[in-house]
Every structure is written in structure tokens, then in C-alpha cells.
Computed example of a mutant assay.
Amino acid sequence: MRVLRTSSVRVLGERDSAAVHALLDADPVGNVFVSSRVRATGLDTGRLGTEVWGYIERGALSALCYSGANLVPVGASPAAIRQFSDHARWQGRRCSSIVGPIDQVTDMWERLGPAWGPARAIRANQPVLELSEDPHVPSDPLVRRVRVSEIGMLVPACVAMFTEEVGVPPDSGDGGALYRARVEELVRTGRAFARIEEGRIVFKAEIGAVTPYACQIQGVWVHPDLRGRGYAAGGVAAVARMAQAVIAPRVTLYVNDYNTPARATYRRVGFREVGAVMSVLF
């Protein structure tokens, strides 16, 4: 196994699976994204398509950092953040964002900013919300799984949502092939939901990350012409109920702190704040 430049950090592999899952499962909601990726493909770098770095302290794994399109520290102490940042700076930026607990990302960005900056955007406080009970509002009965035949209709809505949320289109690099493939995967695995009327997406959302313990809603979007009519609350409630029934018992998502309408909607549905993350976008 390839060892990184520091003695306390190394690339993790399959022999580390038990320790990695124990660390991730200590916070199944907060770590749902990384846990989902590791569970889906394992820790082999070739299959995962990225690296997971481990911080070894007194012979045991105490923290890790997922290094892919997103750089995500997990359970990292200041000492671990220092080591992860040193390697990330030495390796060069390969990610499009740094995402994780506010204190860990703040520390990491202070170390990486001089070499990687400036950031395109910094979302300093994104509350993490969880729904672990029945939603407080009725489900929209017209929200259902998107069919494969409707992918061509869904993709433009996904692109519109991503562009509105992140500030850049997701399909500018390769003409949209990779992004479309990801949307197709979500549809084919039954994790894309929408209300569709007369050939138009009224509401849509996807389940992006899944573990046996939790799943994460992403891409919540209502057509701009139809906002303010209550589609979001019923739609999110419908997605949450379907997710709880067949995907995972705990449903989570995160939202920008300044998005007052979205936060009010999620509060109505029954989500409660359980943490917060920070995102640095490039």
C-alpha cells in the first residue's frame, strides 16, 4: 500500500474497512455521504475512483479524509487536519469543493487557502437537518418515482437546480455526459422523484446518498413559475415517506442558512437541526 509523506497519514484500503465503518457509523447522519460512497464501492482506490486518507494515532485510525470531487474530513482533530492539509497541498487541488463540519473545514481552508484560493464561493453555515419520524404534513399524492422514459425531461430541471444552487452549470466541462449519467443512475435505482404535469417538472428531488441507517435528500426544486404555492412541503414529505419506507429510516439534508423559505418548509415537514457544515466551492 502506498504510504503518504507523513508517518501518521496513509491511503486506506480494504484491510481498514472495519475501522473505517466504525468511525463513519459513529455519526450516521453527519457522515452519510462518505459512508454511502465507501459502502457502494469499498476502499480499493481503483473501484472507488478516489482516495480515502486515514490519520493513524497510537496505532489506530482516529480520523479520515475522503479525497475525490469533494474533499471531506471526518472526525478530524486539529492535528489530523494539519496532516490532511499538508498532503492535499502537496498533491495539488483535485476537488471542486471542501465540505464538512464547520470547525474542520475552517481549519483546513485556513491552511489550504493561500495555495488554492481564492474560492469561488464559501457557504460558511449550512444547517444539517434530520427527519426520523413521520412527516408533519401530508404527502403530495402526485409525487412519484421518475421513469426511465422521463430522464430527458428530468435532466434540464436538475441542471437548472444545480446552476441556481451552486452558481455554475454542472454540464459545462464535458457537455453534460457525466452529469446526465449520474441523473440516469438515480432514476434507474429508484432514487429520483418528481411531480410531473403536462410534460413539465413541477417538483423534483433525489436521494443522493444511502446507507442502511440514513439517506440524504438532494436537489429539491420547484419550477420557478410555480413557487410559493406549497408544492415543496408536500413534495418533500412524499419523498421522505417513500425513503423511510424502502431506503433508510433516517432522512437528512443540508440547506444554506440564508435560504429562509427552504428552512421554513423543512421545519414544517418536521426536520430538525442536528448539526452544520461548511462548503468551500471552487
Rank of each mutant, 00 (worst) to 15 (best):
A80I: 08
P212G: 10
E130A: 15
I56G: 09
L48Y: 00
H136K: 15
G54L: 05
P224G: 09
A19L: 09
A18Y: 02
P138N: 05
P101E: 15
G270M: 06
G92M: 10
T6F: 07
D134A: 15
A69H: 12
D225P: 00
G117C: 12
G59H: 08
Y254L: 08
P73N: 05
D86C: 10
G235H: 01
V52G: 02
V269Y: 00
S62T: 14
G270K: 03
G175L: 11
R15M: 11
E57R: 13
V105A: 01
E165P: 02
A238Q: 03
C65T: 06
L142M: 10
M161H: 13
L64N: 00
A121P: 00
R94Q: 15
R250N: 05
R47M: 08
A119P: 11
G230T: 05
R250K: 12
I196W: 00
R200G: 06
V166I: 15
Q126E: 14
I196V: 15
V220E: 11
A232H: 07
M242T: 01
R250F: 00
L64H: 01
P249Q: 04
G30A: 05
G54H: 01
R15L: 11
G13L: 02
V137I: 09
T50C: 15
P78A: 13
S62F: 04
R268P: 06
L186K: 10
